[in-house]
Design a protein around this nucleic acid. Structure first.
Lengths: 229, 229
DNA sequence: ACAAAAGTGTTGTAATTACACCCATGC
DNA sequence: GCATGGGTGTAATTACAACACTTTTGT
């Protein structure tokens, strides 16, 4: 095992997703410093000497979004290490996917000139570095995990209607789903959601029964597959 | 973005899987140097200054197994970065899953006192560092990918019978599958396998028709789910 | 002939779809 | 009343598991 010839840095970059106005959105920052000053990028930063990767991702998420209390969904995506990916020097980036609960307006972080939610489908300039690739990976991971895990709950508030949950699936997958069949599937999947027992929520149309997350389950069984054709 | 206070190293570690005598096996090395000298570990090594992560994984695989010609299946698993995971200093490990084609006897590498294939289910001492965790992740990834990707082909030789393919599934999942239904499923899944057209292969029992990998497909449709209960 | 493995047919059940229909509210 | 979204019923289709059965070889 030859010793390495130089010492790189390791950063975490975050794909933070949420639903706003029935659209899947990601958190982008406008870079306040060179390189790529003024361009759009994903939030992120260096891993500190005594931090685990997951801790670093949590800290960056807190700094960029102001989220503090509840534990958000946070999962490692993939690590990027092309020598030329950062023009300054060799920096490895460990990408994370984050789904903040009840995501509100993000806060400006220390290095972020500003941060905003952008719909993933809206036209825009390419992101800095290789962040366009990282974002695509994050979106695809979220889409895939909706199928066979209870991930969709993480996009919702603590209490939600089945309609809310359906609109999450529709926004993330970009499809329309049959209301009736969706209702049966999610109420049948064991441990996915459970009724609050509280009063229904009024709005347009018939009031909706409210649900919360069911007991801890990794796998959604049976899975909820997205339409393939 | 504060600058990091110290510079870590980045290594790749490999979960190399193959089937030997109908058993799922992984490649282990006996460490020739401290720390953990004499103990079992996964093959791996540092990423060199001008290497991409994938290139480093390919190089380590070549050095440890002697594989050179064909491109093996090689996919990034996950990155581990707990500050205490290496007693020497801070080392990030990017884990890869590798499935060498026609895996033969591995070659001893430069730092490896010896390397051997060990059945994943046989009792043995714990692996050094956090490699036990990495191995578990690799095995679980392989098991999951058999379901919805054509990964199983990567465990087979260039030409294989449907029985060969079934024994791959059985070894990796640790279950018995119905021969009849398996045959139908894999021949129905579009693009998975195609007949060679050549003569059947003799052995015990009725000669088996031979197949090779079908056209490039990412997804197996319909998927081949493992039994859940 | 027999064992062994490949491969096909059949049948009952479960899952999925598509869509009709009723329910409870706001306006 | 009407629009809107929530929720249930149902029939046709499709997928799936279980297992009986036939085929083709080696011994």
């Amino acid at each position: 095992m030859p010793a390495p010839l130089s010492h790189p840095d390791v950063a975490v970059d975050l794909v933070v997703l949420t639903i706003r106005e029935n659209q899947l959105c990601f958190l982008a920052i406008e870079r306040g410093i060179e390189p790529f000053k003024g361009e759009l990028a994903l939030p992120g930063g260096f891993v500190l000497p005594d931090e685990d990767l997951h801790e670093a991702a949590e800290r960056e998420l807190r700094e960029e979004t102001g989220i503090s209390g509840m534990a958000p969904f946070l999962e490692q995506l993939e690590t990027f290490g092309k020598p030329s990916r950062d023009p300054r020097r060799r920096i490895f980036s460990v990408a994370y996917l984050a789904l903040p609960p009840n995501a509100g307006s993000p806060q400006g972080g220390s290095d972020a000139a500003s941060s905003t939610w952008l719909p993933v489908n809206a036209p825009r300039n390419r992101l800095a570095f290789d962040h366009e690739t990282i974002l695509e990976h994050g979106i695809e991971r979220a889409r895939a995990k909706l199928e066979y895990t209870p991930l969709a709950r993480s996009f919702c508030a603590e209490e939600f209607s089945i309609g809310d949950l359906r609109r999450v699936y529709e926004a993330v997958w970009g499809v329309e789903l049959d209301r009736a069949n969706f209702h049966r599937k999610v109420t049948t999947a064991e441990g996915f959601i459970e009724p609050t027992g509280g009063p229904p929520r009024n709005g347009k149309g018939r009031p909706a029964q409210l649900y919360r997350s069911g007991p801890e389950v990794r796998e959604l069984r049976p899975p909820l597959m997205r339409p393939r054709n």
